[in-house]
Computed example of a mutant assay.
Amino acid sequence: MPDAASNQPSGNNKKNNRQRAATAAKTKSAKPHYSGHRQRLRQRFAEHGDQVLADYELLELLLFRTIARADTKPLAKALLNRFGSFAGVLGAEPHLLREVSGCGEAVAQDIKLLEACARRLGKSEILNKNILDSWSKVIAYCMTAMAYENREQFRILFLDKKNRLIADEVQQIGTVDHTPVYPREVIRRALELSATALILFHNHPSGDATPSRADIDMTKLIISIAAPMSITVHDHIIIGKAGHISMRGAGLI
């Protein structure tokens, strides 16, 4: 029968146990404060969708895919602080994104990829439909596509006789406060596409969507040239960061 002493841990075993306990304690204390945060955030999104997430949390979910091991909350908040909103982050130019500490080439590329997906989704919502019956979706698409451009763009939706989209084209890109528009070129392109109606759009990078006198005069000139060709100009929409103004809705055309 073994004596009691043989059941007691040896000196070496005691030492090893203490070392293992110390290592475990050190590992636990070294665990990052955000440990488990990713899984909890993913779980919330899986169970409840984006409605329960703040903008910075939704942005964090995107950043998880590019940044494998780091706390992404500071970067998400820094991006929102720099660009003002979730839409502002997606619409920011890549070189401006990269100016934010922690936002490298891969992160900037993923953000622009998400913006491209949003544009593609928005455009799919208005294809093969009567545009005039999907007006809110048309506005949403053009806001996504143009609101955060840092130069003025003049964009045209060319429509068929059933007001379905034939083509969506950026006709001109200008400076921060001016885009040259050539009305006869607009009508020439409409005739090439056999379009019978147009919706004109352009953005104001300043953020103020108020039409200028030049905007109104140019629109009226396009309408006057289009009318004898049996081409209808449904509207000219000015896009700003905070909203839009319909010239027809405002009684300007």
Score class of each variant (00 low, 15 high):
Leu62His: 06
Gly104Met: 02
Lys129Pro: 03
Asp50Cys: 08
Ile173Ala: 10
His33Gln: 13
His95Ile: 14
Asp55Trp: 07
Met247Lys: 07
His178Met: 09
Glu152Thr: 10
Ser35Cys: 03
Glu93Gly: 04
Arg18Ser: 15
Gly104Leu: 01
Ser194Glu: 15
Arg164His: 12
Lys26Met: 04
Thr144Tyr: 09
Ser35Gly: 06
Phe154Trp: 10
Leu59Ile: 03
Ile223His: 08
Ser212Gly: 01
Ser29Arg: 14
Ile216Ala: 03
Leu58Gly: 11
His234Arg: 07
His33Glu: 15
Val52Asn: 01
Gln171Leu: 15
Tyr56Met: 02
Arg18Met: 14
Arg38Met: 02
Leu80Pro: 05
Arg42Trp: 06
Leu75Trp: 04
Ala209Cys: 12
Ala108Phe: 00
Glu60Trp: 02
Ile111Phe: 05
Ala70Leu: 05
Asn128Thr: 12
Lys129Glu: 14
Ala140Pro: 01
His234Ile: 09
Glu125Ser: 12
His234Pro: 04
Leu221Gln: 11
His95Arg: 13
Leu53Trp: 02
Asp177Leu: 07
Lys220Met: 12
Tyr34Pro: 02
Leu193Pro: 13
Asp208Gly: 09
Asn203Thr: 02
Asn150His: 14
Pro2Phe: 08
Asp71Asn: 11
Leu63Asn: 03
Val107Arg: 00
Pro2Thr: 10
Lys73Phe: 01
Glu169Val: 13
Lys241Gly: 04
Met218Trp: 00
Asp160Val: 12
Val138Asp: 08
Lys241Asp: 03
Lys15Ala: 00
Asn17Met: 11
Ala70Phe: 04
Gln172Ile: 00
Ile237Tyr: 02
Asn7Ala: 13
Ser6Asp: 07
Met218Pro: 01
Trp135Thr: 07
Lys123Met: 12
Arg44Tyr: 05
Lys14Tyr: 04
Ala227Thr: 14
Ala140Asn: 12
Ser10Asn: 01
